[in-house]
Design a protein around this nucleic acid. Structure first.
Lengths: 205, 205
DNA sequence: CACCATATAAACCGATCAGTTCAGTTTCAA
DNA sequence: TTGAAACTGAACTGATCGGTTTATATGGTG
């Protein structure tokens, strides 16, 4: 973790700084957030902020790193193996969309996309704790299904990715391009059920 | 077209300005692009630029509007109805990915996502000439398939959206988060074939 | 109490950038 | 050829922002 080497972690206000930074970065993005705003939001002087983080970039990376970790931990909740594949898929879809459609998930995504070339490491970090995590969990589960002869899948990783994408149908474009900010239960259920049905039609035995 | 009302269109260098703006905006985004850079790239003085476009925002919107139009026109090429559904889907997938994976498509997407809240109209514009266009074309085709009893689909629009999403499996996240910038023919073929197979498994009679 | 790390407010610096101004030059059509 | 419209380049304004500095205050510890 070379990037954290220069960060001084001791001090009473360290957490305050991170908390304020998180709030402002998430609301305004990297360029949009001013250090003065962050200091104000954190209830801390700019000098204090700079005593912890030598520059804005590093502060941003630390916030992003923590958010990625948080996201990763959340998705680690176990998948119930006792249930039917249909139920498991539905559960997984609900969890995925729960994050993707949340105000918070949306902001993180937007920032990652926007800053992906300014912060090359950031994109990878988000990818690994997000989409890749989802794929791994799903791959695990699908492998079990194949072993139990419930499904027949030649390319399991592709199948996992397909399911993840199916869950975004309609909803994701509308969200990403700011057509809608929230969706009704019915809209979400329509997409999830559709995803499960299509997936099962292809892969269930 | 209220937003274009203030734009003066006459003058020798009008197109030069747009062309330079397109180049710089696409490379650097809205905030990242400086008006001086644009003027330089356009081979035009800043005063001339401002004589056409009263401010940077308006210039950006005009560039984005034209790009959206261009994109829309491109996707309007007819779908060959004589071919089998499988072939039509494959063709549609190739065209979609051709745009999405191109350096240019990627930049436009990135900018739209990043500036979606700074330019509310921009997101909608892109959505309507992009994802919505694709959905409409696909919906048309799928309706024909249903009429011809080649497929059985209860929610045709959802099916269209599903197919579009299936085409993005694996590739899109990797692109968006800057994991990879280009993909091999084999990688693309794998995803397209997978998308067609899954789609047909669900909906073909 | 005295010390020292920590924190603060506010002024300040240098750079960048959108947008303006202006005196002078080019272009082109009548 | 002439005159107006279009264009130029360069300087300038005013504002924002990242980052630094300084003089001062606070609070816990030995």
């Amino acid at each position: 973790m070379a990037h954290a080497a220069e960060i001084v972690r001791k001090g009473r206000k360290f957490d305050q700084v991170l908390q304020g930074a998180r709030q402002v970065f998430l609301a305004d993005g990297f360029e949009g957030a001013s250090v003065d705003d962050i200091a104000r939001a954190a209830g801390v002087s700019k000098a204090t902020l700079y005593s912890y983080f030598p520059d804005k970039r590093l502060l941003f990376m630390e916030v992003a790193r923590l958010e990625c970790l948080r996201q990763g931990e959340e998705s680690l909740a176990l998948i119930e193996v006792a249930a039917t594949p249909r139920m498991v898929l539905k559960e997984a879809a609900e969890r995925m969309l729960g994050f993707l459609l949340s105000d918070f998930g949306q902001r993180v995504f937007r920032i990652c996309v926007a800053e992906a070339d300014r912060f090359p490491e950031l994109g990878r970090q988000f990818y690994e704790t997000g989409p890749m995590m989802v794929r791994n969990r799903l791959t695990e589960f699908l492998t079990e299904c194949v072993d139990r002869k419930q499904m027949e899948i030649d390319d399991i990783e592709l199948a996992a990715d397909q399911f993840a994408e199916l869950c975004k149908a309609d909803l994701f474009p509308r969200l990403v391009f700011n057509i809608d900010a929230t969706f009704s239960e019915a809209e979400i259920a329509r997409v999830i059920d559709g995803a499960v049905e299509t997936f099962m039609a292809r892969y269930a035995i």
